[in-house]
């Protein structure tokens, strides 16, 4: 049962990165560039935001702001996972690589698997898991890039379609509160409206307003 769950998560991750590779190809980035983004950024949503914003002609500053805002969610993940790896003798620099590997999949896996690992081996376990997932994703990125370059249009379109499907469904699955559900629905609905203004930071405007309205609904409900 445990291995099945792992397989499904890894499959979704694989599909996501095949999609990222294909997206990078169709947005005219080089293979080395997109592989570099997988190693350095190591967060699917941030990579997709980077590729779509730069690909649609946004400036470096606009792309950096959009990535930074989307990546805030990594902060609470790191804060909640790292203490479970710490021992009395652990220095901060021992945790730098483990912190870099934290993204949504590894965060879910750490909460599930770390309690089964003796505390003094948890950093090494996280490094192993992170390297394994990174390798899978680098292969997937290359496969997606190559497929988009060589396949008939229909299949290339199908591979690009993996990204919105995998992200929509994995985000919907992670919704825990009413604010998460509202943020997802409003974010989908507001973007096409804001996009007609063509500000260059459409995603930021629609994201911050939809997220804030969703949070407002949560706050209002909690008070009532």
């Amino acid at each position: 049962m445990r291995s099945v769950a792992t397989t499904v998560l890894t499959l979704v991750l694989f599909a996501t990165y095949v999609g990222i590779g294909a997206l990078a190809h169709d947005s005219h980035f080089s293979l080395g560039w997109v592989l570099g983004s997988t190693v350095l950024v190591w967060a699917g949503p941030a990579q997709i935001i980077l590729i779509t914003t730069l690909g649609s002609g946004a400036t470096v500053v606009q792309a950096a702001i959009a990535v930074a805002v989307s990546a805030i969610r990594l902060f609470p993940m790191v804060v909640s996972v790292l203490p479970t790896m710490r021992t009395a003798g652990t220095k901060r620099r021992h945790l730098v690589l483990a912190a870099h590997f934290i993204a949504v999949t590894l965060w879910v896996e750490c909460h599930r698997l770390l309690p089964l690992v003796p505390r003094e081996r948890r950093i090494a376990f996280t490094h192993g898991l992170g390297c394994g997932l990174l390798f899978v994703c680098l292969v997937a990125t290359t496969v997606g890039y190559g497929l988009a370059a060589n396949l008939p249009v229909l299949f290339a379109a199908a591979i690009l379609m993996l990204t919105p499907l995998a992200f929509l469904l994995s985000t919907a699955r992670n919704c825990r509160q009413i604010s998460d559900v509202l943020a997802l629905v409003l974010g989908l609905a507001l973007y096409p409206l804001v996009a007609t203004l063509q500000t260059g930071v459409d995603i930021l405007i629609s994201g911050i307003s939809a997220g804030t309205i969703a949070y407002g609904a949560h706050w209002w409900r909690a008070r009532a």
């Binding site: 997206l23 949503p45 997709i48 935001i49 779509t52 649609s56 959009a66 805002v69 989307s70 805030i72 969610r73 690009l160 990204t163 919105p164 992200f167 929509l168 985000t171 919704c175 604010s179 998460d180 509202l182 943020a183 997802l184 629905v185 409003l186 974010g187 989908l188 609905a189 507001l190 973007y191 096409p192 804001v194 996009a195 459409d202 995603i203 930021l204 629609s206 994201g207 911050i208 307003s209 939809a210 997220g211 804030t212 969703a214 949070y215 949560h218």
Partner: peptide, 14 residues
């Protein structure tokens, strides 16, 4: 909520 809505915007954009 904001991170989720930004991701939703990216999905809508694609």
């Amino acid at each position: 909520a904001v991170a989720t809505a930004i991701l939703a915007g990216v999905i809508a954009q694609i």
